[in-house]
Design a protein around this nucleic acid. Structure first.
Length: 729
DNA sequence: TAGTCTGGGCTTTTT
DNA sequence: GCCCAGACTA
């Protein structure tokens, strides 16, 4: 069969397995997407299954899109023939669950217009609940509580069965109850609810379960190591007596434990399906052998794992460069210089390069250096498009039009832009609508329609007319929403709400914001035919990765987490200092430490040709600059695949000695003799007289902290400030 | 009701 | 050192 020609023996074995449970342990770059797509093709082509009988689940929209494209290409190609993809379920767990719930909404606590609450919505809800319970959010943070609630939901623990063992958990339990109640009142679900509810539906409704089991004869799961209990259960409930389950994953790349993912589901799978065949994919098509050797040396230090011997036919390739910069600014500059050099020689394109880091905060200096050098870059994550205030505002307007019970959206935009509906008016509205047993959004509509005069009587003249005006606006939008397409609706909302004037205020920032709103409008326009429900679901389930495009030929900046699943010819991993990689927060938890190692492994294995591991001798953390230690992982790398200034010339002990004496840097950056001492009286042209509180020599600058009599404490650069010493102190 | 001040906290964030 | 949220003030 020609379909199988391009596959290696292990891939072929996986693709052609009889329709029984199969577990594919796929090393990085081993062609796992290829195996999945070919498996789908083989199921149809060889076994003759219809696309409607097949379900393939991924974790990200991007992965789903990619797989769809590749299956389509395979089907379109001469290998298989005509396009027969119609009817196949191919998407994320959450999208699949949302569709099921929408269809079965009659048996749930929400109706089919439900909205999906994102992190921000969840946060404001949790905060409100804590406030209502008279709990200081500084004592117990809403996000911590939400984390625990999320973890419970991932483990399929409802508030009814949640067991509280201490005061904090008591609070969690009470918030959890209230939180679910509020979600219901908002006709909303959070991400975790989607999975939980889908599991509940399948569990409780035998007919439904039967029909799903009958429909989906073949289930394929990508990134299986990232499944949580709810997702595992969902898959289990979907498989009938004679399951054909094809799961692909790599426990070594499990980096989302803290989100409930449990790579032990791989072991559970082997227990639950003892007949399952396990296939190892070890041949790598991405990286050079040096990179693979480094990766294996790192990951092999983890215990209790199935080892994979990664190999490639690409040859040894370049050595891995280890570089120690002086400090984080120097680190950023090194990366940019290197990229400039590589691209100048024409060896690589700027877009071939990626810079990876452990924490988002590390991107700032990189960005600054890129800007200073006048070079473009692409940043993944952080303030992504759909997280921007103006985008969320407009979406909130749409959500409210779609679902007037959505109180979180209402509160977000009710007075944005300000229209005379202050805190007091809003608080009263919430109170009286609750007393009337309706949502505040419905109350507003009632007021505007003149049917709720008793509610209106609670407000003074000015507030009342503002409420009526807003209610009329909302009800007007609701009636046109059914008639005009999304783009026109958005235009009308922006105009009538005053949002256009509010955001496009003539400043440069305002222009940017307005451009974002127009961008959103363009996306909405594309959804005009599919409708508001689909559009809102799309924006709720979208992620950072989805907005990553290849348009711009520029280096990519991203976290190690965001890098999973991607590959680049040239990779820089920065911040290889103990405390950053591995992160100090993980130090006291062996499981977390194992995950840090996997994270580094993921980073290494993104590189195709060149890998740079960079660290800083000095690093500023929480404001103070400290001498930092090399990441412990650097010592695990085999020296014969390395080159650079940290290789071969020192052991751990020598490194420790060097740090203590810091001789290495004294030659490069001559330590400045401090000119100012604590207690000195000084005079400054503008600030007048003051006393030196602190003086710190950092690299080639002296930073002096001075308490001025007139303006208070200022921090100045000694050589620049033109300070006159009045008294030696 | 909007701008300014202060204090705490600070990892990752597929959906 | 920097950002965000909530308090405070004009």
């Amino acid at each position: 069969m020609r379909l199988l020609e391009g596959l290696n023996p292990q891939q072929r074995q996986a693709v052609t397995s009889p329709p029984n449970p199969v577990l594919v342990l796929a090393g990085p770059g081993s062609g796992k997407t290829r195996v999945l797509t070919y498996r789908i093709g083989y199921l149809m082509n060889h076994f003759g299954f219809r696309p409607g009988e097949i379900m393939a689940v991924t974790f990200t929209n991007k992965a789903a899109r990619e797989m769809r494209g590749r299956v389509e290409a395979l089907l379109d190609s001469e290998i298989i023939g005509s396009n027969r993809l119609r009817g196949m379920s191919l998407g994320t767990f959450h999208a699949f669950a949302a569709r099921m719930i929408r269809r079965e909404s009659d048996s749930t606590s929400v109706n089919r217009d439900f909205v999906i609450f994102d992190d921000g919505d969840q946060h404001s809800l949790a905060k409100k609940i804590l406030k209502d319970m008279n709990i200081d959010p500084k004592q117990i943070s809403p996000s911590k509580v939400l984390d625990v609630i999320s973890a419970a939901k991932n483990e399929l623990i409802s508030p009814e069965v949640y067991l509280a063992g201490n005061y904090f958990q008591e609070v969690v339990l009470r918030v959890y109850h209230q939180y679910q109640k509020e979600l219901r009142r908002n006709n909303a679900l959070d991400f975790d609810d989607l999975l939980f509810l889908a599991v509940q539906l399948l569990r409780e409704k035998e007919g439904l379960r039967q029909s799903y089991q009958n429909r989906y004869q073949h289930i394929l799961v990508d990134e299986f190591q990232d499944t949580n209990t709810a997702q595992y259960r969902l898959i289990q409930l979907m498989t009938g007596k004679d399951p054909d389950l094809f799961v692909v994953g790599d426990p070594d790349q499990s980096i989302y434990r803290w989100r409930g993912a449990d790579y032990r589901n791989v072991l559970r799978f082997q227990e639950d399906f003892p007949q399952a065949k396990t296939i190892l994919l070890e041949q790598n098509y991405r990286s050079t052998q040096n990179i693979l050797d480094a990766a294996m040396a790192v990951i092999d230090m983890n215990q209790n794992r199935q080892r994979k011997e990664l190999f490639t036919q690409r040859g040894a390739g370049s050595r891995i460069t280890i570089h120690e910069a002086y400090d984080e600014a120097d680190e950023a500059n090194y990366v940019i210089e290197r990229i400039a050099m590589l691209t100048f020689n024409g060896e690589v394109e700027p877009g071939d390069c990626a810079v990876m880091y452990r924490t988002n905060a590390q991107s700032r200096l990189l960005e600054e250096s890129f800007l200073k050098a006048g070079l473009p870059y692409r940043l993944v994550g952080a303030q992504h498009f759909y997280g921007r205030r103006e985008v969320k505002d407009v979406i909130a307007y749409l959500r409210l039009i779609h679902n007037p019970d959505d109180q979180v959206s209402l509160l977000r935009i009710m007075n944005t832009p300000s229209r005379g509906l202050g805190d007091k008016t809003i608080a009263t509205l919430l109170q009286v609508s609750e007393a009337a047993g309706i949502s505040p959004g419905r109350a507003l509509l009632g007021i505007a329609g003149g049917t709720r005069t008793e509610i209106l009587s609670n407000f003074s003249g000015r507030a009342a007319s503002a409420l009526v005006a807003f209610g009329k606006m909302l009800s007007g939008w609701r009636s046109v929403a059914a008639e005009v397409d999304l783009g026109l609706l958005i235009d009308q909302v922006l105009r009538e709400s005053g949002y256009e004037a509010y955001i496009d205020d003539g400043t440069e920032e305002g222009e940017d914001r307005w451009a974002n709103v127009m961008e959103l409008r363009a996306v909405a326009q594309e959804f005009s035919e599919l409708g508001m429900t689909t559009f809102l679901e799309h924006v709720a389930l979208i992620s950072d990765q989805d907005t990553l495009t290849d348009e711009q030929n520029a280096p990519t900046l991203l976290t190690l987490h965001a890098a999973k699943g991607l590959e680049f010819p040239v990779v820089f991993i920065i911040g290889l200092d103990d405390g950053i990689i591995p992160h100090q927060r993980s130090f006291d938890d062996p499981e977390a430490m194992a995950e840090e190692r996997r994270l580094f492994y993921v980073g290494i294995t993104r590189a195709m040709d060149r890998l740079y591991l960079v660290r800083a001798f000095r690093r500023r953390l929480f404001g103070t600059s400290n001498v930092s230690e090399s990441s412990r992982y650097l010592y695990d790398l085999p020296s014969d695949v390395l080159e650079g200034d940290l290789v071969g010339f020192e052991t751990k002990e020598e490194a420790a000695y060097r740090r203590k004496t810091s001789w290495a840097w004294q030659s490069q950056a001559e330590e400045l003799e401090p000119a100012f001492r604590v207690g000195m009286r000084v005079h400054h042209a503008k600030f007048g007289e003051g006393i030196v509180m602190e003086s710190r020599v950092d690299h080639d600058e002296e930073e002096v902290t001075i308490a001025f009599e007139s303006v208070g404490i200022k921090r100045l650069v000694g050589s620049m400030a033109n300070l006159e010493i009045l008294e030696e102190g």
